[in-house]
Each structure stands twice: as structure tokens, then as C-alpha cells.
Computed example of a mutant assay.
Amino acid sequence: MLKLASRPVRSSRLSCLRQRPLLQGALALLLGLAGSMAVAEPVAADETRDYHYSDAHLHFVDFFQQGDGLGALLDAMDEAQVDHALITGIGVAKKWQQDAPKKPRYYMGDDGPVYWYSGTDYILAEALTRAPEPVQARFSPFITGFNPTDLNAADEIRQLMAIYPGFWKGIGEVFTRHDDLTRLTEGETPRANHPALRKVYALAAEKGLPVMVHSNVTSKREGHEGLYLEEFESAVRDNPDTTFIWAHAGTSAELNRRLGRMTWLHGEIERMLETYPNLNIDLSWSVLEPYLLDDKGQPRPRWVKLVERFPQRFVLGSDVVGRFGSVGDILASYTPFLDALSPQTAHNVARDNFLRLVSLPVE
């Protein structure tokens, strides 16, 4: 395998990674000997909460298909104790229009449109396949570079899987209802139950790949309870053999700003988890506040109870977009909620549930 061209020092660091299991084994032996010569002290419950993570929502590039690179991402993951990550591109690219005074910095930076961009998958695949195997093993790459309103989408995904056999571990994040991103996207409005996506879901079931779908539960302007819920629910209901991950539990930062906390959302999430065993919930980005935590930063008991009731159905991610310096801070911000869960459930949410979704062993 080729070394990372952008960070040649990575090879020495990877050598250390390969030696880490030996060092850990030696340390465990020394600790065991020390423990046999001393009386064990009880460990406080809080001291056992040393969370390791699977970042279940991470974008390798931004809306201009650029990012910090794989070396910076590995550094951020190590610092944040992220053992594994769902990694995906961004399925759209922002257009820099000729009449714009300067290049926009975000997809909402001006009124220029965004367009479906298949190259994002190749950017990700080329970066990862050139990396050493120990690096590749830390990622589950998801396919996202397709137009979810194009009836050709499933065929394009199948072709991409043939180009990189055995590489892809899932599909998504699929953008459907997504605030201003939907408004700015050229072409037909995507929705979770679009006929094109029905073909994609069937392919995902055939290949055993989970699908992450971004589908806002309602409109930021209308605010009706569950305005778009049926679009997503019918996709889950009509494809029982497909494993779904609902990005951000149907919320968004814009919905939070416009509508505040949708008090009815908890009940809908609970109902859907009861009804559809193929549904999983992503708690990243816009779910922490105001849902998991109240305005004083305290865990909301109803959400703690909900996660405890379905301890293997929730995953956690940073949702960073091409820039990785904030991964640790974002994941650490979930600590108050994780600490309110039982230790096993907390570790499920922080790391193990996503590993199960992509059929990786949970140690």
C-alpha cells in the first residue's frame, strides 16, 4: 500500500499504532502484578466512564469538496478517543457564480445553487485506498455522491461498488428535506420515499448496507407536526429489510432556531422505534440541544428513559464537515447525557452500536 502523500510523517505514527497492542499487553501485565500486591480500592462510578467513540456521522470534505485531509482526521480521532468512524463525502457541491463578489464560505453564503456531485465518492475512495491497511480499518466509508431523484441512482451506486469492491460499508448521508439546502439544490425536490430511493433501499438490503437519510420531520416555516414525517416513515415501513439511520432524529439547527423544541418529537421517535425494528437514530448535531439536554445543560429524563429502552438503536457522531479540529469538543459535549445512562447503554451509544450496524466486532 502507498503511504499518505500529504503527511509523510504518518508512517512512523502508524508503526506506533501497530506496536500499541504489545504495549497495552505489557501494561496490563504490570498492572495485574501490582494489583496482586495491594488491596484493591473501590472505583467511583464516574471514573469508569472513559468513553471511546465510533463517530457515526463524519464528512471527509465540505460543500466545496475540500477538507483538512486524512492525516489531520487521524490526529483528531486519536485525541478524541475515536476508534472508528463512518466517513462520507458531501453529495452536493456549492456553485461559485460569476456574479458573486467573493467565493462563498458555506452553502448558505449566498444565493448560488448547489448541485449533485458524484466526484465526492471518488475523492474519499482515493484517499482511503492509498492509506495503509490499519488506517483503512478505522473507517466505514458510505456512498453519498448520487442524485436521489434520479431513477439511475441505484445503478450508479452498483457501478461504484464494482469499481471499489468490498470497500463501501453503507449509503448516505442522503439529503432529502434539509432546510435551505433543499431550496438551493438544482432540480427536483428530493424526498425520502422518492421512487429513485426505493431502488437504492432495495440495493442496500441486497448488499446488507445501512442507509443514513437526512429527512427533516417538518418545515421550518410551516412547523406543522410531522409535516414530512410520512415521507420518511413510509420509506422505513416499505423497506423492512433495509437498515435505516435517521440523521439527527429528523431535526436540524434551522428547525431548532425557528420552532424551538418540538415537544411532540419524543413521542414520534418512540412510536417509530416500537414499530420499525430496522430504524436507528443518529443523535448528532441538532439533537443535543434542546432535546437531550435542557437549557441548564442537564439531561432530560424522558430522553434518557427512551435511550435506555432501546439501548442498541442510537448512535452518536460529530457531523464535522471537512474540518476536524472540533471532533473532540463536539463528542465531549455529550458527556452529561452519556453519564446519565447506565454504563452499558452509554458505551453502546458512544461506540458499540455503530460497530454492530456495519457488522464489525464489539470488543
Rank of each mutant, 00 (worst) to 15 (best):
L2V: 13
A5C: 11
R7Y: 14
S12C: 10
R13Q: 15
C16V: 13
L17G: 04
L17M: 13
R18S: 15
R18Y: 12
R20F: 12
P21D: 01
G25K: 14
L27M: 14
A28K: 11
G32N: 13
G32T: 12
G35N: 13
G35Y: 08
S36P: 01
A38H: 14
P42R: 12
P42M: 10
A44I: 04
A45E: 14
A45N: 07
Y51F: 15
Y51N: 08
Y53C: 04
A56M: 06
H59L: 08
H59G: 02
V61I: 14
D62C: 03
G67D: 02
D68Q: 13
D68H: 11
A72T: 10
A72D: 12
D75P: 03
D75W: 08
D78N: 14
H84Q: 08
A85M: 09
L86P: 01
L86Q: 12
G89C: 10
W96C: 13
K103N: 12
G109W: 02
P113N: 09
V114F: 01
A125V: 05
E126P: 02
A131Y: 03
Q136V: 09
I143R: 07
N147D: 15
T149V: 11
L151D: 15
A153F: 02
A154K: 04
R158N: 11
I163A: 15
G166R: 11
G166N: 10
V174L: 03
V174W: 03
D179P: 01
R183M: 13
E186I: 13
E186C: 10
E188V: 12
T189Q: 15
A192P: 02
P195N: 03
A196I: 00
A196N: 04
L197W: 04
A205G: 08
K207S: 06
L209Y: 07
M212N: 11
H214I: 08
S215I: 02
V217N: 02
S219C: 07
H224S: 14
E225M: 13
G226V: 00
L229C: 09
L229G: 10
E230C: 06
E231G: 00
F232D: 00
E233Y: 10
A235L: 02
A235R: 01
V236L: 07
N239W: 01
W246T: 00
A249Y: 05
G250T: 01
L255V: 01
R257V: 03
R257I: 02
G260M: 08
L265W: 04
H266T: 07
E268I: 09
R271N: 10
L273C: 01
N278W: 08
L283W: 05
W285S: 08
W285M: 11
S286R: 06
V287K: 01
E289F: 12
Y291W: 06
L292D: 02
L293D: 03
D294E: 11
E308S: 05
R309F: 06
P311T: 07
Q312I: 10
L316M: 09
S318P: 00
D319G: 05
G322Y: 06
R323S: 14
G325R: 12
V327S: 00
V327I: 14
V327Q: 01
V327D: 03
G328I: 06
D329N: 14
D329P: 05
D329I: 09
D329F: 11
A332R: 15
S333C: 06
S333L: 06
P336R: 06
F337C: 03
D339C: 08
T345E: 00
V349E: 02
R351S: 09
D352P: 03
R356I: 04
L360F: 11
L360E: 12
L360Q: 15
V362C: 07
